[in-house]
């Protein structure tokens, strides 16, 4: 499959759009693939439902919106339950288990649970980097972008807090690895 559709959902203020931009930049500028990023949002900048999407492809992306996500990253319970049924066969969902209660999910969808918010708070001492921890997990689990490309995009995105965010990314990569191992064990 050359076209991978990714949807990130959460609340305004969680860095959902920023995360999508980082994935898009990593894929298109640093990994040399094609990528399109879009977003939709309400009139409130904080607290409203927020959705951002990225499409990554080996060939130019025509239709720019996501139809059937292959990958969903959810940082709020509402977002997860709103979008979970859009996921197709073989899709994966990465959720923050501190923020989302997965419950029942349709067959054929693999759910990976990571504790991004807790890690941001306890390990990195800064809840603002929750989204970047999630990006680390996303990178480790999906392998759709290379860690090197993500590190470059993160460094560009946060010039003043580069070190903190790169550490957050590394912690997230670890969480992602653990989630992968966990999932292969249960299989």
């Amino acid at each position: 499959m050359t076209r991978t559709e990714i949807r990130l959902g959460g609340l305004g203020g969680q860095g959902i759009i920023k995360s999508a931009v980082i994935i898009g930049e990593a894929a298109s500028i640093h990994d040399g693939k094609e990528a399109v990023q879009t977003a939709s949002y309400g009139p409130e900048s904080r607290g409203s439902a927020c959705k951002a999407e990225v499409i990554i492809s080996d060939t130019p992306v025509d239709y720019p919106l996501v139809l059937t996500p292959h990958i969903m990253v959810a940082l709020s319970n509402d977002a997860f339950h709103k979008y979970k049924n859009d996921l197709g066969e073989g899709a994966i969902a990465i959720i923050d288990s501190d923020l989302v209660k997965a419950g029942k999910i349709k067959p054929g969808v693999q759910v990976y649970q990571v504790t991004a918010a807790t890690t941001a708070h306890n390990v990195l001492k800064n809840p603002l980097v929750t989204n970047v921890v999630m990006l680390g997990a996303f990178t480790a689990i999906t392998k759709i972008v290379t860690p090197e490309a993500m590190q470059k995009a993160i460094a560009n995105a946060f010039p003043r807090y580069r070190e903190l965010n790169l550490r957050a990314f590394d912690e997230g990569m670890k969480l992602g690895q653990e989630a992968l191992e966990q999932s292969s064990k249960t299989k």
């Binding site: 931009v21 898009g24 930049e25 298109s28 500028i29 094609e34 990528a35 399109v36 990023q37 879009t38 977003a39 992306v61 720019p64």
Partner: peptide, 9 residues
């Protein structure tokens, strides 16, 4: 708006 707001290379 699609082209105005979307991001690409």
């Amino acid at each position: 708006e699609i082209i105005g707001h979307m991001r690409e290379r």
